[in-house]
C-alpha cells in the first residue's frame, strides 16, 4: 500500500518537534548557525530552510486572513513524487521510488552530476558543497521505518496531528473531508501536482503566499522525456543505417580518402 503524509497547515503550532525527530533519526549534524535561525528567518531563505543537514524545515509566514494578520507554519521537505523527476533524471539510478511511497537515494551509486537538483520540480534537493566527496541530501521519508511498518519519525512526534501518516488514498479522502468541514482552500497540494506526490498539503490560507509552487505542471515530469528516450535507440540505429547507405552510395567508384 502506498503510504503518504497529510500536512494540515492550520494545525501546525510550529513546535519543530518534527525537524528534531528528523535530526535524531537520521543522525543529521547540528550547525550552530542553522540552530539559531527562526522559522521566520528560514521562510525567507533562498533554499527554504533546507540544507544538507536539514532535511525538513518549519517555516513561518505572516499573512493576512479575513483582515487579521495571522501566522502559519509550513513544513518543507521532499514531496516524494509519485513519478519523481529525480528518479528519472538520474543516469546512474541512484534514486528510486519505493512502492511504499518513499523516494530514496543511495550515495554509493551517485556520480554527482546534480541533474536531479535541476530537475526536481520542488527544488528540495541539497548538495554537500562543503565536502570533498559530496552527496545529494533530502528527506528519505524514513524508508527503513516505513518498510518496518512504522510511521515516519516526524509524524510520530507531532503533538497536534498537523502531520499524519497513513495510506495515501485514505489521507486524500481525509484531506477532502477536512477541506469541506473547515472551509479550507479547495485544493489538496500534492494530489495532482507534478503528477501527484506522497505528501499532501491542505491549508486555509492561499498556497502561493506560502512559497508553494502552485503553477507546477500536473503531468508527471518524467513523461516529458520518456518519449524522447524511447525513440532514441531507434532513431540512432535508423540514422546509422542511413549514414551507412549514403556512405556506400557516395563512395561508389571513388578512391577512398585516407
Amino acid at each position: 500500500m502506498a503510504k503518504g503524509v497529510l500536512v494540515d497547515i492550520p494545525k501546525c503550532i510550529g513546535c519543530e518537534s518534527c525537524s528534531v525527530a528528523c535530526k535524531l533519526w537520521n543522525e543529521l549534524e547540528w550547525d550552530e548557525q542553522e540552530k539559531n535561525k527562526t522559522a521566520i528567518d528560514r521562510a525567507k531563505e533562498p533554499n527554504n530552510g533546507l540544507w544538507p543537514e536539514e532535511w525538513t524545515s518549519i517555516n513561518r509566514y505572516d499573512l493576512e486572513k479575513d483582515g487579521e494578520s495571522v501566522a502559519r507554519y509550513v513544513k518543507a521537505q521532499c514531496m516524494h513524487c509519485e513519478d519523481p523527476a529525480c528518479v528519472s533524471s538520474c543516469f546512474s539510478k541512484a534514486f528510486q521510488k519505493l512502492p511504499e511511497g518513499p523516494v530514496i537515494y543511495d550515495q554509493s551509486l551517485c556520480v554527482g552530476c546534480r541533474y536531479c537538483m535541476m530537475a526536481c520540480p520542488f527544488d528540495v534537493l541539497r548538495y554537500e558543497w562543503k565536502k570533498a566527496i559530496p552527496g545529494v541530501r533530502k528527506c528519505q521519508m524514513c524508508a527503513t521505518r516505513v518498510a518496518n511498518n512504522q510511521e515516519t519519525a516526524c509524524t510520530s512526534v507531532c503533538p497536534t496531528g498537523a502531520i499524519i501518516f497513513g495510506d495515501r488514498d485514505q489521507l486524500l479522502a481525509e484531506a477532502k473531508k477536512r477541506i469541506k468541514e473547515n472551509g479550507y482552500v479547495d485544493r489538496v497540494f500534492g494530489e495532482k501536482e507534478a503528477g501527484g506526490t506522497s505528501w499532501l498539503y491542505i491549508s486555509d490560507t492561499p498556497f502561493e503566499q506560502m512559497r508553494f509552487r502552485t503553477d507546477v505542471t500536473t503531468k508527471p515530469l518524467p513523461s516529458y522525456t520518456e518519449g524522447y528516450m524511447k525513440a532514441t535507440p531507434f532513431v540512432g540505429v535508423g540514422w546509422a543505417a542511413i549514414l551507412a547507405g549514403l556512405y556506400v552510395f557516395n563512395n561508389k567508384g571513388k578512391e577512398p580518402l585516407d
Binding site: 535530526k23 533519526w25 537520521n26 519505493l98 530514496i104 541530501r137 528519505q140 521505518r145 512526534v157 501518516f165
Partner: peptide
Amino acid sequence: PDKAIGGNGWMPTQYNAPG
C-alpha cells in the same frame, strides 16, 4: 531501503510504532 542515506539514528521507543 537500507541503502538510503540516513535512518541509523535513535528515537524514544514510544515513537517506533505504526502510524
